[in-house]
Design a protein around this nucleic acid. Structure first.
Length: 356
DNA sequence: AAGGCGGGGTA
DNA sequence: TACCCAGCCTT
């Protein structure tokens, strides 16, 4: 296939098979709202369409413009983000909104450098915004599109090291018109046909122009660098209950893992399992701790956490760690606080087991 | 270049 | 179980 045919063929396929997504707009019909595209792109970073659907509508309804988001409280932004993961995105989204208002008078910049100066916007998101929201003839390279390009070319090296080749080839395929639709069409192709494991080459519009298919080895691409083993870490959470049956949560630091979310105090999350008594050094020494039956397993990107719960009652509201903020939470009032999925598992486990 | 950073869907 | 997802940022 000639370079120019790829866009032609794919846009025809896209128009015939278009998926209705809450953030998707036809560039030929109405005005594209940069703010909405931006929120969707941040949410979709390393996150599947199905997962984002449950968050996007609520978020947009709560904050309909970049000005509204800029005026929001960080804690409320986190509340709407809880469970979605990669919480730095929520912090960055809020911070970027404030920068757009403060430094660009509330109007999103259109050039790559200015976009990438906003937190959370890198090479991909900048290109996606320029293509989808501004109609610039660029192709954002996400996981889907890299996989497609690697197959079209039958690249024999790991995609992680083929950035320039993919960039150059992808750029040649971008149409001058409808570049945003082309980008979204490519992503749809990757999500529905050019699948990672079992690509559906039989119904693929790129069959004729795909070198991997011609070699009958589509599923062998893209080549991946071998990945490392995920280590295990261990923690004991301190479930401190007061005389009203409420339990104590503390706010995590503004940076790092689960930034800004509420969580039970705990021992350090170390790479060795905790013994019978060694964890007690990290809790209130005067406390009578009792272990809750069972344990929790939670998988993060770079380690698996194994956690147990130590239960204790407290009359005073003494926190067990150095967190600056904490709060007593009654069961049923959790929705007022931004909690990670890990913390939700801890809470569910505690209430399932009851008091020891 | 490598590692930190969540959580869920899928085969 | 293992892989991957509309990546970004720091080191």
């Amino acid at each position: 296939m000639k370079d120019s045919q790829y866009a032609e063929v794919l846009l025809a396929w896209y128009d015939a098979n278009k998926r209705a997504l809450p953030w998707r707009m036809d560039s030929r019909v109405g005005q594209v709202d940069v703010y909405r595209v931006w929120v969707s792109e941040i949410m979709l970073q390393q996150t599947t369409v199905e997962t984002v659907k449950g968050y996007y509508g609520r978020f947009i309804e709560r904050w309909q413009t970049v000005d509204a988001l800029a005026s929001a409280e960080r804690d409320e932004v986190l509340l709407f983000w809880q469970g979605l993961g990669y919480y730095r995105r929520a912090h960055g989204l809020h911070e970027a909104a404030r920068k757009v208002v403060a430094e660009h008078k509330g109007v999103f910049p259109r050039d790559d450098a200015s976009l990438r100066a906003l937190p959370g916007i890198g090479a991909y998101t900048s290109a996606a915004l320029r293509a989808i929201a501004f109609g610039e003839a660029v192709l954002p390279l996400d996981g889907n599109i890299k996989r497609i390009l690697a197959r079209l070319l039958a690249l024999n090296k790991p995609v992680e090291r083929e950035g320039r080749t993919l960039e150059a080839f992808g750029q040649r395929l971008v149409p001058r018109q409808r570049s945003g639709d082309f980008a979204q069409a490519m992503m749809d192709l990757g999500a529905t046909i050019c699948l990672p494991r079992q690509p559906r080459c039989g119904i693929c519009p790129y069959q004729k122009g795909c070198l991997a298919y011609r070699k009958n080895k589509a599923s062998a691409y893209p080549y991946r660098a071998p990945k490392k083993e995920r280590p295990h870490r261990y923690a004991v959470f301190f479930w401190i209950e007061n005389e009203h049956g409420a339990y104590w949560l503390e706010k995590r630091p503004e940076k790092g893992l689960l930034a800004g979310l509420m969580i039970c105090p705990s021992t350090p999350w170390r790479d060795k399992a905790w013994g019978k008594n060694d964890w007690r050094a990290y809790g209130d020494k005067k406390q009578q701790w009792q272990m809750v039956e069972g344990h929790i397993v939670h998988v993060f990107t770079h380690f698996t956490l194994h956690a147990t719960i130590a239960y204790g009652r407290s009359k005073d509201r003494r926190p067990t760690s150095k967190a600056t903020e904490g709060v007593w939470v009654s069961h049923g009032k959790e929705k007022d606080y931004a909690l990670s999925t890990l913390m939700r598992k801890v809470i569910a486990h505690k209430y399932k087991q009851g008091a020891p």
